[in-house]
């Protein structure tokens, strides 16, 4: 039963990792950009959530109403102001510029919020739980998983069922020809980053409700998101959810063997999958 419990808890943890990963996967899909600052943007969202809950005295989940649009706006501005200039055939500029943004964000957060760990107070939601077939499930992890499923379903719908998604796919296929269709790629990329950071805002808030956070933890969140993307297979959003779950289960089982093994077990599973299935478990079938 202990083991089953570890697997179930790990599965639910995977919801959070899928939220970390979804934005990363989205922007890679649209513009082949790998954003090293992604983890720090998740942490930024958590801090924005903290400030909103403190300033307005609202529940952290209500803070989403403020943080989601704020992060989307930051995403659009970041893309049009800086990141669009880095896109091209050369790999270095986007990597190094997002790396620079990561360092700037980390230190700016340190300056504003200090290095002290913070946590958002979500009241009863943090501890509320229910029994299911002998297992005790926390409402918060269950809610996180449900939100992750909803977010991925939503992204999937936007991508494959709406004019915006069509624009994303067309621009990803061929930027010049997309431009001929009246799509301004700078704007399309801006919208993609806005959408990605809107998802990041949700990820940041659930992170901040679940655990304490400080400005230095962004790198770790980037890595979890990245591992979920690669395990699931590039370009496959549902695969990303599966990747998050596999990572989460690996970590909780590792932690059950020895608390020091939690993170290591996740990384090892990632490396094993990379060794055996370099394209991930569910790579999108080439059209």
């Amino acid at each position: 039963m202990d083991w089953l419990n570890a697997i179930v808890q790990g599965t639910l943890l995977g919801g959070l990792y899928a939220l970390f990963a979804a934005g990363l996967s989205l922007i890679f899909g649209v513009m082949r950009l790998v954003n090293i600052a992604h983890g720090d943007l998740i942490v930024l969202a958590a801090y924005l959530g903290l400030t909103t809950t403190v300033a307005l005295g609202v529940h952290p989940l209500l803070a989403l109403i403020v943080v989601v649009p704020a992060m989307a706006a930051i995403g659009y501005a970041l893309q049009r102001g800086i990141l669009n200039q880095t896109l091209g055939d050369d790999l270095l500029p986007p990597l190094l510029v997002t790396f620079g943004i990561s360092v700037i964000l980390q230190n700016a957060l340190l300056e504003v919020y200090t290095a002290d760990p913070q946590k958002m107070n979500a009241g009863a939601l943090e501890t509320a739980s229910f029994d299911l077939g002998g297992l005790t499930l926390g409402w918060l992890p269950v809610l996180t998983m449900l939100v992750a499923i909803a977010v991925i379903a939503g992204l999937q719908w936007v991508f494959y069922r709406t004019p915006l998604g069509r624009a994303f796919r067309a621009t990803s296929d061929n930027q010049d020809i997309a431009q001929l269709m009246g799509l301004n790629k700078a704007h399309v990329f801006g919208l993609a980053m806005a959408l990605a950071l809107a998802v990041t805002a949700i990820a940041g808030l659930f992170l901040g409700i679940r655990t304490s956070f400080d400005p230095s933890i962004g790198g770790g969140r980037l890595i979890f998101g990245f591992e979920a993307v690669i395990i699931g297979g590039l370009g496959n959003l549902w695969g990303t959810l599966a990747g998050g779950v596999i990572l989460g289960v690996a970590q909780t089982i590792g932690a059950k063997i020895d608390p020091g093994w939690q993170l290591l077990a996740g990384h090892i599973v990632f490396l094993l999958i990379l060794a055996v299935r370099p394209n991930g478990l569910f790579p999108r079938v080439a059209a």
Partner: peptide, 25 residues
């Protein structure tokens, strides 16, 4: 409007989606 050399359809889009995106404007 330009009909580009080599057709250059969007491979990720269906036939109808290719037409629809042409009608964006």
């Amino acid at each position: 409007a330009l009909v580009p050399e080599g057709r250059q359809l969007f491979p990720s889009l269906s036939v109808e989606e290719n037409l629809l995106i042409g009608g964006r404007i």
